[in-house]
Design a binder for these strands. Structure first.
Length: 897
DNA sequence: TATCCGACACGGA
DNA sequence: TCCGTGTCGGATA
């Protein structure tokens, strides 16, 4: 049952004029068998003897109040203490007030009877859910957002012709009123009470009411019309742009009015976290993102990963250093009031809110420290909302950001007063909240939004959207093209690269720094050489978080692995902080691969660095599955049509190569297809291919619908008449948890490689030895592409750009012996490569690599190492350094020719 | 024509 | 529902 349903059902029960059935109705809301409640109603299993009491074994001891509720509660407690087995809950109520106790956690509840719906979770142990767990899963923000989604739906349905802007503004204002009446900005419950008193049950005059109310909130009391009725005049002056625009007339029903009242009565707005609420509310209003409610909001821990290294750690260090020194403290106090902050993809403003709160806390801490050293001055605010800037394309999100900033400000004002009693910052009238601009961030000049001179301390940060090159919309591609004019290969960049580039230009030569949460793919594989060289000519990475899996508290988490990068103008003196799985390291330089090292990048080469057999990309069917047969389909096909056996070849992709999965593929020539024109199975398969290709939006795929019997792309090797010899097969994607990437050395006969493996055809064993070596793995690991954190092998970067050692015939023969040994052991062991190579890092079922196989690999590794240099490599870093210097040497040689 | 990648996709505990 | 690990075909050069 949804949260709102519990609340609604209990609301109905407490609203009944007659409470005689209360406890039975209440139990009925929870997972207590209906039969049990029915029996209880009839008194059959009620173990209590006294009147007005209900004792349900193990679950509840209930008593109606007899006048003095506290005394009744104490009596009940005494009675229960005598019992052998305690009921989980004690509950007494006179239907005005309610006292309850959870005998397991010893938590108590002391509330007005009417507020019971808000506290339904107190009794969730009846459903087997502990309150602590529930609170963790469903904080006040989530519950508020769910309730708001309901209200939004009803209001939208009642107002099909209303503008988005009008609706959104209405919602934001209602949210503000609800928050204000729970947090002493307004008199307690003022808004909800006025709604109840002044509007008709059917909602007919609600619009009029809300129109007058919103109108009044924008005026100071002195400026309001003299005839303003007192029920309106009780509301204070709010301002802050929130109520400036005229309320757009809307239609309300009994239902929407009720939902608003319930939102006021059932939710604990004082417990709202503006950072999370914003994301939730925003998701509610944009229908397209409703399905992944709050999927992309950045969690507070992740925001801290950005802002701490970017500026917060530094400010805190300066604070520590300034303690005991009035001048320094005062300087820091003034400084934090001048720093400017911008999130150019602010969404509902989480980064800005967290930053604002942290700065306000620092302000408080400085004041306390000043007080401690005996300096007491009148409170003058330092940090203000107008230091905060944001750009966001969604107009509602902009409104939510402004609202959330106000909520954050109020919360910090309360905190200030609590910690320093003579310091007061009034929340009303609302402060001007920076510039939160509704715009496409990539098409506006950031300088015109947040103007800074060369000496202004400024920080730009956020979590902009990621879209891979093949998934971008036409408009997104256009923006990236435009921004990266003159950069070759820019069509391959992720959408987020636009933010990196604009951020780079914004801070260039200024006293400003940037840091973003980004998809890790801009630090791996092909994008590195396209994006980073021109940026790192002028800037340096001063801190970074290496890849980690994206996570927040939303229901369906986005599937992506992210990294964090901080950039600033070059400054040789600073130490860089590189954060990885094991905390952080101070290093001299962070490379664009987010490892310690130089800014050298590896390009995606179309030809090998040195003469060697070429690596070919496998065959790509683009067939909608029509040409492919799994084991079962294959057996069925050849038993029904034995003549098909010669056309069905072993189909090898990464899955087949590594896990030993078996699939087959129809491999037909034009001649073959004519011969099979009467075979119904073949014809039905070709129909699948034809229709799948016709459905494609890609013109070239559509064209291939006329040749459904052929793969859309065939590797050059397969265009030869016959297949023979051996091929080194490399899986395009494979797990990073294995000690080696398992590669194959397969006979070519009968084998069709697909587009998820690469092949070096007619290859000698020494080539297999090189590719299977640790030297090569280190290269692939550091500069190759990744799918999340898997290896994503590519011929251009991993093979063509890999510097091969110079090999004598004798050395080749030696390597082949080691390779042969590996192949022999594999054959002896049998089973799949995945079994033999194990998954040593997996948490469960950790399966080690076969020891004999590992020994053979280590012997081969040593032999390959020695082909590069005679002295040992102490570690993989030194292997990589050598490879990178060889690459630069050889690549430089090529481009100078 | 030949890839390199995916705010992923999917099967198994 | 989380965890482990690789499909499939688009868009680019």
């Amino acid at each position: 049952m949804a949260i709102t349903e519990y609340e609604d059902q209990i609301q109905e029960i407490v609203s009944k004029p007659d409470h005689s059935e209360f406890i039975y109705d209440f139990l009925g809301v929870y997972d207590i068998p209906r039969a049990t409640v029915t029996k209880l109603r009839k008194g059959m299993n009620n173990l209590a003897k006294e009147a007005g009491a209900v004792y349900l074994k193990n679950k509840l001891y209930f008593r109606e109040g007899t006048g003095d509720l506290m005394q009744d509660y104490a009596d009940l407690q005494e009675r229960v203490d005598e019992l052998g087995s305690k009921p989980r809950y004690l509950l007494v109520t006179d239907y005005q007030h309610l006292l309850a106790k959870d005998t397991k956690t010893n938590e108590t509840l002391d509330i007005e009877f009417a507020k019971l719906p808000q506290y339904f979770d107190f009794f969730l142990a009846w459903n087997g859910i502990e309150k602590a767990d529930f609170e963790k899963e469903n904080p006040a923000d989530v519950r508020a957002a769910e309730r708001f989604a309901k209200l939004y739906d009803v209001v939208v349905k009642d107002n099909p012709d209303a503008t988005r802007k009008g609706l959104n503004l209405f919602l934001i204002r209602i949210l503000f009123c609800l928050f204000a009446e729970d947090t002493n900005i307004f008199e307690h419950d003022l808004f909800t009470n006025r709604v109840k008193q002044m509007t008709a049950d059917d909602g007919s005059n609600f619009d009029q009411f809300i129109g007058s109310l919103f109108g009044v909130l924008d005026f100071e009391k002195a400026q309001r019309p003299v005839d303003t009725p007192s029920w309106l005049n009780d509301f204070p002056y709010v301002d802050g742009d929130l109520f400036k625009d005229q309320h757009e007339s809307l239609h309300f029903s009994a239902k929407s009015r009720k939902l608003i009242i319930e939102a006021g009565e059932l939710l604990k707005w004082d417990q709202i976290n503006p950072d999370i609420l914003g994301s939730m509310i925003q998701a509610v209003a944009s229908e397209d993102s409703r399905s992944h409610l709050g999927m992309h909001y950045t969690s507070v821990p992740n925001i801290m990963k950005v802002i701490k290294p970017l500026f917060l750690d530094g400010l805190r260090e300066d604070f520590e250093a300034a303690k005991d020194n009035e001048d320094k403290l005062q300087q820091l106090y003034d400084r934090i009031g001048r720093i400017k902050f911008m999130d150019p993809a602010c969404g509902s403003g989480n980064f800005l809110i967290i930053t604002y709160k942290e700065l306000r806390q620092l302000e408080i801490d400085i004041l306390i420290e000043l007080n401690n050293i005996g300096v007491s001055t009148m409170y003058v605010p330092s940090v203000t909302l107008d230091q905060f800037y944001g750009i966001e394309i969604d107009d509602f999100a902009c409104d939510v950001t402004r609202l959330s900033l106000w909520i954050a400000e109020h919360q910090m004002n309360v905190k200030l007063h609590r910690q320093i009693s003579d310091a007061v910052r009034p929340t009303l009238p609302l402060q001007h909240a920076g510039a939160i601009l509704q715009a496409d961030s990539l098409s506006v000049d950031w300088n015109s939004i947040m103007q800074v001179d060369l000496n202004t301390e400024a920080y730009v940060f956020g979590n902009p959207p990621y879209v891979g090159h093949s998934k971008q919309t036409t408009n997104q591609k256009k923006m990236i093209r435009k921004i990266f004019t003159g950069i070759s290969g820019s069509g391959y960049l992720d959408y987020i690269a636009g933010w990196l580039e604009l951020g780079f230009r914004y801070i260039l030569g200024k006293r400003a720094k940037i840091a973003f949460v980004t998809t890790n793919s801009i630090f791996e594989g092909e994008q590195v050489a396209i994006l980073w060289p021109h940026i790192l000519e002028k800037l340096q990475i001063h801190f970074a978080y290496q890849s980690f899996k994206w996570k927040n508290n939303a229901k369906g988490n986005a599937g992506v692995t992210v990294a964090i990068v901080g950039l600033q103008n070059k400054n040789d003196k600073i130490q860089c902080h590189l954060y990885g799985d094991q905390g952080f390291k101070c290093v001299n330089h962070i490379s664009p691969y987010l490892i310690e090292g130089s800014d050298d990048v590896v390009e995606d080469l179309s030809l090998p660095l040195s003469p060697r057999p070429e690596m070919q990309f496998g065959n790509k069917p683009t067939d909608g599955g029509g040409l492919i047969f799994n084991d079962e389909e294959y057996n069925e096909a050849i038993s029904k049509y034995p003549e098909l056996k010669r056309y069905l070849r072993r189909y090898v992709g990464s899955d087949e190569l590594v896990k030993g999965k078996r699939r087959y593929v129809l491999w037909l020539s034009e001649h073959d297809v004519k011969a099979l024109s009467n075979n119904p199975l073949v014809q039905s398969r070709l129909d699948i291919v034809r229709s799948a290709r016709l459905k494609s939006g890609t013109p070239s795929t559509k064209q291939w619908a006329s040749k459904p019997y052929m793969f859309k792309q065939i590797a050059p090797y397969y265009k030869k008449q016959s297949l023979h010899g051996y091929v080194v097969v490399v899986p395009a994607v494979s797990s990073e948890n294995r000690e080696y990437i398992p590669m194959g050395y397969l006979s070519n006969e009968d084998t069709i490689l697909n587009n998820r493996v690469y092949g070096v055809f007619d290859a000698s064993l020494w080539l297999f030895a090189i590719l299977q070596s640790r030297m090569h793995l280190v290269w692939v690991d550091r500069v190759g592409g990744k799918l999340e954190t898997r290896y994503s092998y590519s011929s251009g970067i991993c093979y063509n750009a890999f510097p091969f050692p110079v090999l004598t015939e004798r050395k080749k023969a030696e390597l082949e012996e080691y390779a042969l040994r590996i192949l022999d052991i594999r054959e002896e062991l049998g089973g799949s490569l995945a079994d033999m190579y194990g998954t040593p890092c997996a948490k469960t079922n950790a399966k080690p690599m076969n020891l004999r196989l590992r020994d053979a690999h280590q012997a081969l590794d040593k032999a390959v190492d020695r082909a590069y240099r005679s002295n040992n490599f102490p570690d993989n870093n030194s292997r990589f350094e050598l490879l990178m210097s060889l690459y630069k040497e050889e690549q430089g040689g090529i481009s100078n020719e």
